[in-house]
């Protein structure tokens, strides 16, 4: 499996961050950064990471299954995450998520047919004081109203 030169460089650098013989520590960063490029945690990708870190594919699988941001199925090009945890809920997060569902015609962790957008109801992502919060991929949007969400969603381009 081949990666972009940038990602290869990142992987090579990552492995140097940990004590000798403990390169397994690079696993989660490799999966996270790799997922951005590969699109999801595919079997091929897991096997490749396992090979590079001297792990069995099962050991990688154990880790992938644990973390909620590692997806075995591809999410949309734009992954819209709406927080409905308490702080956001108190300021309309749940209604905002419902609005997003209707607007996109998608449910939790569903992907649009064209693969452009996916939706996820997420747990607290650390924007409590500026609630309700939305993340599109890794970009935060604070104090989002339904209208603002519409604007954000309409702005998602192929």
């Amino acid at each position: 499996m081949t990666f972009s030169p940038e990602l290869e460089a990142k992987f090579a650098d990552l492995i140097t961050h940990y004590p000798e013989g403990r390169q397994r520590a690079a696993l989660i960063p490799m999966l996270m950064f790799g997922q951005e490029e590969v699109g999801s945690i595919t079997n091929e990708f897991m096997n490749e990471v396992a090979r590079r870190l001297g792990l069995t594919p099962m050991q990688v699988d154990e880790v992938v299954g644990y973390y909620s941001m590692l997806h075995k199925k591809p999410m949309g090009k734009y992954h819209v995450q709406v927080c409905t945890n308490v702080a956001c809920m108190l300021r309309g997060g749940a209604e905002l998520y419902d609005h997003a569902c209707h607007k996109l015609g998608l449910g939790h962790k569903e992907v649009s047919a064209d693969g452009l957008v996916s939706l996820e109801e997420v747990e607290c992502m650390g924007a409590c004081s500026w609630a309700p919060a939305v993340q599109v991929n890794f970009d935060f949007h604070h104090e989002v109203t339904a209208d603002q969400l519409d604007t954000i969603l309409e702005g998602l381009k192929k």
Binding site: H17, R22, R24, A25, A26, L27, I28, P29, L31, M32, F33, L53, E62, V63, Y66, Y67, S68, M69, L70, E123
Partner: peptide, 24 residues
């Protein structure tokens, strides 16, 4: 070092497991 989505990793020993490339 990046996490990958797990509240449990805020617990210090789970964080260390995660840092070592394991389940948190």
């Amino acid at each position: 070092h990046t996490g990958a989505g797990a509240y449990e990793c805020g617990e210090e020993s789970a964080l260390l497991e995660s840092l070592e490339g394991k389940r948190g």
